[in-house]
Structure formats: structure tokens, C-alpha cells
């Protein structure tokens, strides 16, 4: 019993570290549910494909994903997995997606720097050659790599969704720095930019990223209406997959392991009762 209490307390402590971080002032993330949540959650492959399209056409202009390879797209539970191609390197979709990119390489004959079409083994190329270039192109801000972004934020899926859909007109009295945008879900302290009453400083912060999603900014191949919310939800699902591509495998393995452990517990308990039956204790 106490074991459970302590586990829960430990869990509580881990979670209560969260509010400490939010103390700077940001709106709590919006409540939005995803198919991959919960012990039996699954990725929706159509949604992952739509999400990839949003990433490819919108986010990838500034954000890299340097932990993800093209072959990952065709892995089991991935956006372009096809049971016909258990080896994702054979998947024509994956190969075609990779071939859309040109990446830097060295010509092995001459040693010259060349560009070649990417293969399924290559990682997603970074949009900028280096960090100073990325900062120079974004008013000094560095667009973070998105490979594990969902794991790198408290309430990752809800947080990223809220940032993407949460842009608002700044409240009157807030001096927005040029090149910055007001977003109530962004962690920040706006006291220095607030001309109104000191007790009602707006929550949220400034973000250097302009509102990235526009209604019908992308055209979904499956006919889904591309509202801002839909695009945000789809791209968050894609990013969640990229952060944790083995999530479904983990949950399926977990189910088998838990069933095994529960049965084993029953058997060992029965043995325990039998062995101890003649001992007063």
C-alpha cells in the first residue's frame, strides 16, 4: 500500500515540478485529445501523412529535424509504412520523398563539394547551413530542431498545438517589439512591455515565429479541410511520432509484458500461500 502511495507521491513530485516552470506566466495549454494517447493509443496514419505535409510545406522552411531519417517515414507505425515493403528503403514513397531533397556531399572521385538527391538513408537536411545563418534569417531567434520537440515540453502535444493556434492580437497597452508576436501560451514575462496597471500584466510572452498556419495554407490530398486547427493537430501528431517513433511498439510490448507479470504474480502468490500454509506467522 505504502509502495503505491510513495509511487504516487513520486509521480506527484515529478508533475508538481511542472507548475514551478509555468510560474513565469503562460496560459495553460488547450485541452485537445490525440489518437496516440492512453495505453492503447495508436497513430492515425492518414493524420501522420497530413502532418508530414504541413511540416514539409510550412515548418521545414525554418525548422530542421536532424534525428529523423527518410527511411523512418516508412517504418512500421510511420506515416508512409506499407506492409508490402517491410524494409522502408524499398518503399517507393519514401524514396520519392527523399529524392525531392538535394543534400551536400563530397564527390568521392574528385573531392569536390557536390549536391546530390537524398536517399532513404539520409537524415532530413537542416534548412540552414549553420546556427548563425539560422539566427540571421529569423531576427536573431533560433528555430529549434523539431525531432524531439513533443518530449521536450511539458504537456508536449497540447503545448505545441496551443502555440500554433494560440496567436492573438496583443492586448491594448502592450508594446510588441518589432519582429515579435504575442502568444498567450508562450512562457514569458511581459512586465517590461506593459504600459497598463502593474497588477494586470497579460500572461504569455513574445515569440519570434509569425503565425505559421493559415486556413487552406496546405492542400490535404485526402480532402480533409485544412483549417488552422486541423493543420495544427495533424502536424502535432506527426511531431509526436517523430519524437517517439517506437511508441506503439512500446505500448504493444507493454500490454504483453503486463499480462505476463499479472499471471506470474498470481502463480507466485499461489505458491507462496501453499509453501507457508503450515507456518504460523
Amino acid at each position: 500500500m505504502l509502495r503505491k502511495v510513495i509511487a504516487l507521491a513520486a509521480l506527484g513530485l515529478a508533475i508538481s515540478a511542472g507548475p514551478a516552470l509555468a510560474a513565469g506566466g503562460a496560459e495553460a495549454p488547450k485541452h485537445v485529445e490525440f489518437s496516440f494517447e492512453g495505453p492503447f493509443g495508436q497513430f492515425d496514419q492518414a493524420q501522420l501523412q497530413r502532418g508530414y505535409k504541413v511540416y514539409r510545406e510550412v515548418c521545414a522552411a525554418c525548422h530542421g529535424m536532424n534525428l529523423v531519417s527518410f527511411r523512418n517515414l516508412g517504418q512500421k507505425h510511420g506515416p508512409f509504412y506499407d506492409p508490402k515493403y517491410p524494409n522502408p528503403n524499398d518503399n517507393p514513397y519514401v524514396r520519392a520523398i527523399a529524392a525531392e531533397y538535394q543534400i551536400n556531399d563530397i564527390d568521392s572521385e574528385t573531392g569536390d563539394v557536390i549536391q546530390r538527391a537524398a536517399s532513404s538513408a539520409d537524415r532530413f537536411p537542416d534548412p540552414y547551413p549553420n546556427e548563425p545563418a539560422a539566427r540571421a534569417g529569423n531576427g536573431g531567434a533560433l528555430p529549434p530542431d523539431l525531432s524531439v520537440i513533443i518530449k521536450a515540453r511539458h504537456h508536449g502535444p497540447q503545448y505545441v498545438y496551443s502555440i500554433l493556434t494560440g496567436y492573438e492580437n496583443p492586448p491594448a497597452g502592450l508594446n510588441v517589439t518589432p519582429g515579435q508576436y504575442y502568444n498567450p501560451y508562450m512562457l514569458g514575462d511581459l512586465t517590461a512591455f506593459w504600459t497598463g496597471d502593474h497588477h494586470s500584466v497579460p500572461v504569455g510572452g513574445f515569440i519570434a515565429m509569425p503565425p505559421p498556419l493559415q486556413p487552406d495554407g496546405v492542400t490535404f490530398d485526402d480532402g480533409t479541410r485544412a483549417t488552422v486547427e486541423q493543420q495544427a493537430k495533424d502536424v502535432v501528431a506527426f511531431l509526436a511520432w517523430a519524437s517517439e517513433p517506437k511508441m506503439i511498439e512500446r505500448k504493444q510490448f507493454g500490454l504483453a509484458a503486463m499480462i505476463y507479470l499479472v499471471l506470474l504474480a498470481g502463480l507466485v502468490y499461489a505458491s507462496y500461500r501453499r509453501i507457508w500454509r503450515n507456518v504460523a506467522h
Partner: peptide
């Protein structure tokens, strides 16, 4: 299996 990052820090 179900909360591998709950005890860690994002």
C-alpha cells in the same frame, strides 16, 4: 511502458 518520461524532466 506507459509513462517513460513522467519521472524525468522535459
Amino acid at each position: 511502458f506507459y509513462g517513460p518520461n513522467l519521472l524525468g524532466h522535459p
